[in-house]
Design a protein around this nucleic acid. Structure first.
Length: 220
DNA sequence: ACCCAGGGTCATA
DNA sequence: TATGACCATGGG
């Protein structure tokens, strides 16, 4: 998958110029980023906020805190984020991994590729979740691919949108400078744009990323 | 009553 | 490699 550098840069400038800085990831700790990355799976951020607020009430926005909760209580906290029984197991797996690998502070010293492999080995952490944790939690220069990114890519005519994850990640990373801050904003901007309704902004008149958008035309 | 939301796992072909 | 069932809440 090949993406033109000027095009990749141009779309970023346009999105940034329109929406401005996104201040991602909304969290107060690396652990909270990890929790959010798992809870956001196939749900809306609003629901995740609710679940995180529930955890906070139980003083469970830390590894120790989550470990103290019973499965029943943890599941009850996660309920608003949907698929809560599934996510309870995934959060447990995440915590188990952190405990057995010496904690976040030690993990910070590992190479990005090593960290990525370790994350992918955790139950419930796939490519997107792993990359979100790497980029937003551990400040590594990894470009996150999600469904909005695939739609954007397709609607820009850069590709089909169904290419393998790694191909797309590689395409963006080669087209852009290796820059954590830029990757951070770019992905956040793609999501922000995708959330807009058609015609709600000048940019969306040309391309909204919602599934049934009437304007599947180019941003450029 | 539907569709969708910042996915991943598991079974199957 | 690729498709489909499944998980399940909350907002539009």
């Amino acid at each position: 998958m090949r993406i033109e550098k000027s095009a990749a840069r141009g779309v970023f400038e346009r999105l940034y110029g329109h929406y401005g800085p996104q201040a991602w990831w909304p969290a107060n700790s690396v652990f909270e980023v990890m929790l959010g990355a798992v809870l956001i799976q196939n749900t809306a951020w609003r629901n995740v906020e609710h679940a995180l607020a529930n955890l906070k009430q139980h003083s469970a926005l830390s590894l120790r805190g989550v470990d103290r909760l019973s499965d029943a209580v943890l599941a009850r906290c996660l309920r608003p984020s949907g698929c809560f029984n599934v996510k309870t197991r995934r959060v447990r797996a995440l915590c188990e991994w952190l405990r057995t690998s010496g904690g976040i502070k030690r993990l910070q010293r590992d190479e990005t590729e090593q960290l990525r492999a370790d994350l992918l080995a955790v139950h419930g952490i796939g490519r997107e979740t792993a990359d979100a944790i790497l980029l937003y939690g551990l400040q590594r220069p990894v470009f996150v691919i999600d469904t909005y990114t695939r739609r954007l890519l397709r609607r820009l005519g850069w590709g089909q949108g169904n290419e393998p994850y790694e191909a797309l990640r590689n395409g963006f990373e080669k087209a852009l400078p290796t820059n954590v801050q830029m990757y951070n904003e770019y992905h956040a901007l793609i999501v922000a744009h995708g959330k807009q309704h058609c015609r709600s902004t000048p940019l969306c008149k040309a391309c909204c990323l919602r599934p049934r958008c009437k304007y599947p035309a180019s941003l450029a």
